[in-house]
């Protein structure tokens, strides 16, 4: 039997390089984990971490009420948590560059000063909802797959504008 060719959410849209800002796509395995009642400790043990709201621990990202996303391989949590494969549901984008916070200020009302490395937040990206994860090198942005084109458009627009401003003072 034949095979189906996979296409990523931002296929043909990324990478975007403007000034020293870059927007790239990643295609990690993404698993949602929602522990059953009384099983949170066991889930923490199995995953090695369980993040508090608005934080990421290891590869486990807080993603909502009693909900975390595991980026990459996820331990077997049968009987401990409801898990779903979310890899295809989200476009995973990474924004990096010196003016990262200036770009973010044009995309979301979230306070970047309160989002140091290791922070996660559910917030807006223009009119869309997004899951943000601040890493040591940049910002991982997760948006609904169907809205990838709009998201890349919005982010690129902000990157362009920030770069144009930077050129003013340069």
């Amino acid at each position: 039997m034949g095979n189906l060719i996979a296409t990523s959410a931002a296929s043909g849209l990324c990478p975007v390089n403007i000034g020293n800002l870059t927007l790239t796509e990643r295609t990690p395995t993404l698993t949602s984990v929602s522990p059953f009642k009384g099983k949170k400790t066991a889930v923490r043990k199995a995953l090695g971490h369980w993040p508090a709201p608005n934080e990421a621990k290891g590869n486990v990202l807080w993603a909502g009420r009693n909900m975390a996303f595991v980026v990459g391989e996820c331990a077997d949590l049968a009987g401990l948590a409801a898990t779903t494969d979310q890899s295809d549901a989200w476009a995973a984008l990474t924004l990096e560059g010196d003016a990262l916070e200036a770009v973010m200020a044009r995309l979301t009302p979230l306070d970047m000063a309160a989002m140091g490395p290791g922070a996660t937040a559910r917030g807006l990206l223009g009119h869309m909802s997004a899951l943000y994860h601040r890493t040591k090198t940049g910002m991982d942005i997760y948006v609904f797959r169907s809205m990838t084109q709009t998201a890349v458009h919005e982010i690129t627009h902000a990157m362009t504008s920030v770069a144009a401003r930077a050129a003013l003072s340069a």
Binding site: A82, T84, D88, A89, R145
Partner: peptide, 19 residues
């Protein structure tokens, strides 16, 4: 699940975009 029956052990998540 949050307001009427928070005691129920049930988890919901959208998978619209996954498939």
């Amino acid at each position: 699940t949050q307001a009427l029956h928070p005691e129920w052990d049930v988890s919901i998540i959208s998978t619209t975009e996954a498939w």
